Simulated scan of single mutants.
Amino acid sequence: MASTFARLLSDSRRALFTMLGIQAVIWSVQVVNWLDDYDLSREYGLRGERMEDLPEMFTMPFLHFSWDHIVANSWPLFVLGFLAAYRGMRKFLLASLVITVSGGLLVWLLESPNTVTAGASGMVYGYLGYVVLRGVLDRNLLDAVVGLGVAAVYWTILIGVLPIAHGVSWLGHLGGLIGGLAAAVLLRDPKTAKTAKTADTADTVRPASAPAPAPSPGSPNAALLKELDDLGL
């Protein structure tokens, strides 16, 4: 128990410093971007259907178009990123990769080539989906409580995956959310997955009813049973 708590504390510390580092990078890029009249966002944001722009799916989460834009993304990114990372950095990095690729590909495939998409909101939606579904799949009490808390606090932002708000990349939101859910499935605890699979595929074995023992010849009911047998009863 003590070793488990120590590991959780160590992973949480790494998650905290990781998210602080990511925030530092995003805000530093924002300062440079602002001074350059947001040319970085226009240059390294993602445009749909252009093969040469496909690698920009990895740069667009670090770029924003205004101070309001980065402020709106920073707090949920920090909270949800930390909750996605506190159970281990390896899974966090893999989940981040799945979310980035999923959100980027959906934008690249379906967004207009004349539209530049940038911002960390796709990662926010991805971490949201990952944290909530992980709590369900891993059957871990702490993860389940965290997932329920996240769902209760952030469920209202799910409206952002619908094409109803002007100037908002709902495709990036939807792609990120899909990536987060996929990452939760792909990175689920192997012990839990094995247990569930065993429970689903195991055959239920029931012992067959043993035949009634034949009465011994000396039994008082032997004669009666013999007569009933002769009568076919």
Rank of each mutant, 00 (worst) to 15 (best):
A6C: 00
L8Y: 04
S10Q: 00
D11I: 01
S12Y: 02
R13G: 12
F17S: 04
F17H: 02
L20H: 02
L20D: 04
I22P: 01
I26G: 00
V32M: 02
N33V: 01
L35T: 13
D36R: 11
D36H: 11
D39T: 14
Y44N: 09
L46A: 01
R47P: 04
G48M: 02
E52W: 08
E52I: 11
L54K: 02
P55N: 05
P55A: 05
E56N: 15
E56Y: 15
M57T: 08
M60Q: 13
F62L: 14
F62V: 12
L63T: 13
D68N: 11
D68A: 12
I70L: 10
I70H: 04
A72K: 10
N73I: 11
S74T: 12
S74I: 06
P76G: 03
L80W: 01
G81V: 08
F82Q: 00
F82K: 07
F82N: 07
Y86E: 02
R87A: 05
R87N: 00
G88A: 00
M89I: 14
F92E: 01
L93I: 10
A95H: 10
A95R: 03
V98Y: 02
T100R: 03
S102L: 09
G103L: 07
G104A: 03
G104R: 03
G104E: 05
V107P: 05
V107Q: 11
L109T: 11
S112H: 06
P113S: 02
N114V: 08
V116C: 05
V116I: 09
T117W: 04
A120D: 06
G122C: 09
M123W: 14
V124C: 08
Y127M: 07
G129M: 13
L133Q: 12
L133M: 12
L133E: 06
R134E: 07
G135K: 09
V136Q: 10
V136D: 10
V136C: 07
D138C: 10
R139M: 07
R139Y: 08
N140D: 15
N140W: 06
D143Q: 14
A144I: 00
A144E: 08
V145W: 03
G147H: 09
G147A: 09
L148Y: 01
V150I: 06
A152N: 04
V153M: 02
Y154P: 03
Y154D: 00
I159V: 14
I164H: 14
I164T: 15
I164A: 15
A165W: 15
G167I: 14
G167C: 15
V168F: 15
S169H: 06
S169I: 11
W170N: 13
G172H: 10
G172V: 11
H173Q: 12
L174D: 12
L181W: 00
A184F: 06
V185D: 00
L187S: 03
R188P: 05
R188D: 03
D189E: 02
K191D: 15
A196N: 10
A196M: 14
A196E: 15
A199S: 00
D200F: 07
D203Q: 03
D203S: 07
P207R: 01
A210C: 01
P211G: 08
P211H: 04
P215T: 07
S219F: 06
A223M: 11
L224M: 13
L228E: 03
D229I: 12
L233A: 05
